[in-house]
């Protein structure tokens, strides 16, 4: 039994190592990273200080954020996850303000403009303790 489980996991690791995009940070990704940093600065949000890191993380497609916004199920899962807590016991909370989401909205605007409306809609549909 352990051999089978180990074998499946090893096979999965090989697939993951082979399919992982090791060259996320190309010229286009760096360009988008710089765009994102300038728009964060313009919006008065704490901007990432390292374009290389942003390019490595978000690549050219906006990574997890854009992928999540394309799927109703992922947005639903996100709504379930809004909050804090452990592996099982998490419960939705009242968010303080929009700030943590503004970063996601900017990523959507920069990397997947077609999903920007979905991001805005999500942010606007939530209730915040403060409006500012």
């Amino acid at each position: 039994m352990y051999m089978t489980i180990g074998g499946v996991l090893a096979a999965l690791l090989v697939v993951m190592l082979v399919t992982w995009n090791y060259h996320k940070s190309n010229a286009e990704a760096l360009d988008k990273a710089n765009q994102l940093i300038s728009s964060a600065q313009a919006a008065g949000l704490p901007a990432p200080n390292n374009p290389q890191r942003v390019a490595d993380t978000l690549g050219t497609d906006g990574g997890e954020i854009c992928a999540a916004l394309r799927s109703d199920q992922q947005v639903g899962y996100l709504k379930t996850r809004i909050g804090v807590g452990g592996e099982y016991g998490f419960r939705p909370i009242i968010l303080l303000n929009r700030a943590p989401y503004e970063g996601a909205a900017l990523i959507a605007k920069t990397y997947c403009p077609t999903e920007a409306a979905q991001a805005e809609q999500l942010i606007n549909s939530l209730k915040y303790a403060r409006n500012s």
């Binding site: 690791l13 993951m16 190592l17 399919t19 992982w20 090791y22 996320k24 940070s25 964060a40 949000l45 704490p46 901007a47 990432p48 390292n50 290389q52 890191r53 490595d56 993380t57 990574g63 997890e64 954020i65 999540a68 916004l69 996100l78 996850r81 809004i82 700030a99 943590p100 989401y101 503004e102 970063g103 996601a104 990523i107």
Partner: peptide, 28 residues
Amino acid sequence: SSEISLTAGVMQAISAVFANFGLSWLVP
């Protein structure tokens, strides 16, 4: 904190921290 949007999730957070040290290859 603006960068760790809730959407990002644990993988994105790990990628961002690793990327800072040129360790993106460890992400998979």
